[in-house]
Amino acid sequence: AEDTGVRVELAEEDDGQKSSIAMRLCVEDAKKLKGKPKDNGAIEFSFDLHKDHPEDVAQEMIDSGFFQECDSKTVAKSIRDRVALIKWRRERTQQANE
């Protein structure tokens, strides 16, 4: 994935079954963001792979004051990339099982 300065990773092991999964977002390089993030903490949240959209979660983080509006695309992209990877891995596991 492209280096956005924001890293999103799984906060729990993916059992490949549940739709809602815990994820963790960390700012790795604040210089890559246009605005100043609130702090350098890790933000843990749950993401529903079937219902949630990365753009909405990014906007919620901005509403909550973690990031500035100008970084919404960067945050959304970081989440989207990770979600795509999780989905891809699940598909591959499913194919292997069949």
């Binding site: 702090d39 350098n40 890790a42 949240f45 979660v57 909550s64």
Partner: peptide, 27 residues
């Protein structure tokens, strides 16, 4: 420090925990 919890009006919960300084300086 301890973790802080923020609940967005949409219902999603964000749990913020401080990252140790040493980890931030890793390449």
């Amino acid at each position: 420090g301890s973790a802080m919890q923020v609940v967005h009006s949409a219902g999603r919960r964000f749990i913020v925990s401080p990252v140790p300084e040493s980890r931030l300086q890793e390449p």
